[in-house]
Design a protein around this nucleic acid. Structure first.
Length: 423
RNA sequence: GAGCCCGUAGCUCAGUCGGUUAGAGCGCCAGGUUGUGGCCCUGGAGGCCGUGGGUUCAAUUCCCAUCGGGCUCCCCA
């Protein structure tokens, strides 16, 4: 491997032109489909105040305790955003978006940063798209959010996914359940894994999510949170399930599904794909009815999800789903000699103003090399110009796919090519 | 934070049981066609065999370290 002096940081990758075409195709799809759901795009800064992320996600979460890129400059503390729910909520509060009336239905696409060990489907700079609906406590909002998430994958043809669903309850239900869970685990506290022992006081729900072998017997016999939901949470949960069923969206209830951020309440969900390897979550989200208030706004119920762009691309590749188009150019001007070259340079702007994409050789190469380059660039047409053409004021228009040529004045060439950009 | 695997040309990979000028396919450049691409033929450029040290008469090959990459655990998108 020839090493270059400068490289990207660990877990941060260049997205090269051939890849970018795939990304653009996905981003276009997401924007078009979001519009159908009447979600509006929001863009927030890459960096936030550290305190927002710490308060928003929770001091004890893995993300905050060991995965954030943070630094300070003067008085200010900066953090590269590890997710976008807290920043979107910050923006909602800071910009008084509630004053726009109704519920706010927002979506985003952009880079996030977490300082983890990279592996398949996991990078330090990665990209998510997602949705946040603020201002509604109605189960319809939960279901619309889930529906949009599923919709994107279905549009692409990724259908072998599993939607996992749970309710982690509202604060009242959760406190009650936490107490029950702790008294269940307490007698065997010493037998729990080290990490679960740490979580016991601060966030016992996360113990349910443990994959440690020694925790399994105690998790399996633990009471389920869904049995301890109060009236309100239970009703909300059953409405979500009812709407999903009506929509024909299959789901799998998973009472052990507990998500990594502290802000979740009631609905929690994840979309899993068997095509991703160890990192099998395509997307995840849930309701967070307390976060807006936590960040300093009026109490505002909200629900959202985030999905991994890289994992989406992996899934498409595993399933053989083509993304984006081949690179191509409408017209490649092939020139012979200085006069022709000058003519070509002067005609490129006219072609472009007429709506065509157009290019020519920048390296002074032979005609054969220019033709080869035109082929490589996937040019639909070449215009071949030499002294003969300049004298006659008729230029050779070659259809590269059909290998047919005609000799025409430049105006007629333009007219002939018009159909290329009609749509 | 822990474990496993891998570093030879731009890419994918051979190879050297330690011994003169390190190979293939693809890609790139040029010629075959003094004005014509995709196929074919010929030629060319391009490697301190990741880096440093050790063993040896001799290291790309063996040993150690280091750096880089990949996968996994944990957690998450």
């Amino acid at each position: 491997m020839a090493q270059s002096k400068y490289t990207t940081h660990l877990g941060m990758v260049d997205i090269l032109p051939d890849e970018v075409r795939k990304w653009q195709a996905l981003e276009n799809l997401i924007r078009i489909e979001a519009e159908k759901f009447n979600f509006e795009e929001i863009r927030t800064p890459i960096m936030e105040q550290t305190e927002l992320i710490v308060r928003g996600l929770g001091q004890l979460t893995d993300i905050v305790s060991k995965e954030i890129f943070a630094f300070s400059r003067g008085e200010d503390n900066y953090v590269l955003r590890p997710e976008l729910t807290a920043p979107v909520v910050r923006s909602y509060v800071e910009n008084h978006l509630d004053q726009r009336g109704g519920s706010q239905k927002l979506f985003y696409i952009g880079p996030m940063f977490r300082a983890e060990r990279p592996q398949k489907g996991r990078q330090r700079q990665f990209h998510q798209f997602g949705v946040e609906v603020l201002g509604s406590d109605d189960a319809v909002a939960d279901v619309e959010v889930i529906s949009f998430m599923i919709h994107i994958y279905q549009k692409l043809g990724i259908t072998n996914t599993t939607l996992k669903l749970n309710s982690v309850g509202d604060p009242e239900s959760r406190e009650k359940y936490k107490a029950v869970l702790k008294s269940h685990l307490k007698p065997n506290f010493d037998k729990l894994s080290e990490i679960s022992q740490k979580r016991f006081e601060k966030n016992p729900l996360r113990i349910l999510d443990s994959k440690e072998e020694e925790d399994r017997p105690f998790i399996e016999t633990a009471p389920l949170i869904t049995e301890y939901l109060n009236e309100e949470s239970r009703t909300h949960y059953s409405k979500v399930k009812e709407y999903l069923t009506d929509l024909g969206i299959q789901f799998e209830e998973d009472p052990y599904l507990v998500r990594g951020m502290d802000y979740y309440t009631k609905t929690a969900f994840e979309l899993i794909s068997p095509d991703l390897g160890a990192q099998d979550a395509l997307a995840g989200g849930g309701r967070y009815d307390l976060l807006v208030e936590e960040i300093g706004g009026q109490p505002t119920p909200a629900v959202g999800f985030a999905a991994g762009m890289e994992r989406l691309i992996i899934a498409c590749e595993e399933l053989g789903i083509p993304l984006g188009t081949e690179k191509s150019v409408d017209v490649y001007i092939v020139t012979l000699g200085d006069a022709a070259r000058k003519w070509g340079v002067s005609k490129l702007p006219e072609l472009r103003m007429a709506g065509l994409s157009a290019t020519m050789d920048y390296m002074g190469r032979s005609m054969k090399a220019q033709m080869k380059d035109a082929n490589r660039e996937n040019a639909s047409f070449t215009i071949i110009v030499g002294d003969n053409e300049l004298n006659e004021e008729k230029f050779t228009l070659r259809n590269m796919k059909a290998s047919e040529e005609s000799s025409l004045p430049f105006d007629e060439i333009l007219a002939n090519l018009e159909y290329l950009y009609v749509d």
